[in-house]
Amino acid sequence: MKAVLEVEHLVTSFPGVGRGKTVRAVNDVSIVLHSGEIVGLVGESGCGKSTLGRSIVGLEKPESGRVIFDGVDLGSLSGNRLRAARRAVQYVFQDPYASLNDRQTVGEAIDEALIIVGVASKAERSARIGQLLDQVGLASAVRDRFTRELSGGQRQRVAIARSLAVEPRVLICDEPVSALDLSIRAQVMNLFLDLRDQLGVACLFIAHDLALVRQAATRVYVMYLGKIVEGGGSDEVYGRPSHPYTQMLLASVPEADPMIERRRKIPLIKGEIPSPTNPPSGCFFRTRCPLAVGECARIEPPTIFLTPTHRIACRFANEIAQKSLTDA
């Protein structure tokens, strides 16, 4: 499979306010996206997952590192060529109530995007709007409705149609269904699966809902305090989580079956995510880690590959993986 988007050693920092220190929201992150693939990016709030997404599309300016689209480093481009590359990577925002203009009709909202791409004739644009609405599963009758008249799920579909108007190769979806009701979520999730299959779009799916990501994504990255701590196939990361943080995260998700949930041993988790202005020395997770030893405070954890695709930033990854095998 060909990589459509590669992120290499990306660092994005925010200056501290007043005496505050600089926050490295994205700290040396490398990830890959292939065409026609949904890749999950999970982690707790404040871990930097949205900043990573925003840095990829240029909404934040990375301090160092590279974003490579279709083999070309975006940092080496400027002018029209940069704009064209940027256009191919679109962002879908979490809140469809904030991302659409209330005073536009659905047709106008999509038309705006088509004008920017330079679809010249009105007839062509109109045909394309009909096509896009069909693609996102909306009846063409909604074209003349104001976006404010639509439900959350419908609005998110319009937002997706707008991103698709520019024929992107990559969608960065930042919690695209977390503002939607449970009964509507499945409909929008299935739309992403369809877009992947029909258009071959690659999706970076940023979410905190681990169960949702497991089902939708073929690969997943787990982020903690600006760093990727574990990455691999969904079957690997969910089936054999080998970073203590991933294990903790997965064990915290409640089960909807009361028989399982009441017997479940909820892991005793120490504290909360530390302040990113002052991250711990060595391994960032060591302050909450049940396995931490003295060495973890001194040296950054090595990256261990359990398989060619399954990577973990923890010195104990092999032992953890072994143990989860014998436990299972």
């Binding site: 439900s151 009701d181 449970l182 499945a186 169960a211 497991r214 089902q215």
Partner: peptide
Amino acid sequence: LIDAIPRRDDAIGSRFRGLSGLP
């Protein structure tokens, strides 16, 4: 509602179950 919750034994990459229509 309960059927719409993703389960551990759902195949990776499988379609999501949900309710049709709108509330």
